[in-house]
């Protein structure tokens, strides 16, 4: 498993976390290239369907990021995200998928260093878990 490179899908909220990622770049912060970012208008736009599809299509982990509670551009979007991800994590567990493969983080546009730190942490965690193999089990 030494040469396993995890694939991680990161959903970035347009107003905070994407800015955070931008700042990480401007500050020349170092973080692994295993993360594939997808910009969404709000973290609550990320439906459990998107996460499921990411897993089925080959992601080993999914990270959802948004504004800190109270800072949401749409007032209560991230409160919905908290509930959605929590409910969905339980569902994933019932399906036999490690709940560590999904993570929710708050990253503001001033937290470039946090962005880099979270990406590194997540990559290391998934590397330890190993690949998520969803290939069909045969009869």
């Amino acid at each position: 498993m030494a040469d396993f490179e995890p694939k991680i899908i990161v959903f970035l909220c347009n107003w905070c976390s994407y800015g955070g990622g931008d700042l990480a770049g401007v500050n020349r912060e170092q973080y692994p290239s295993n993360v594939l970012g997808i910009k969404v208008m709000c973290s609550s736009r990320v439906s459990p369907e998107h996460i499921m599809e990411s897993f089925v299509d080959g992601a080993d982990g999914v990270l959802v990021t948004g504004c800190h509670p109270g800072d949401c551009h749409y007032i209560d979007g991230n409160y919905k995200t908290i509930r959605k991800i929590d409910m969905f994590t339980k569902i994933l567990e019932d399906f036999g998928i490690d709940p560590k493969r999904i993570r929710l983080e708050w990253i503001s546009s001033a937290e470039g260093n946090k962005y880099a730190r979270v990406m590194t942490e997540m990559t290391e965690e998934i590397r330890e878990l190993g690949p998520l193999n969803l290939k069909d089990e045969v009869e």
Partner: peptide
């Protein structure tokens, strides 16, 4: 007929 369809052995 959902995305995951049956219990996986990831845990």
């Amino acid at each position: 007929k959902s995305y995951l369809r049956y219990k996986r052995r990831d845990i």
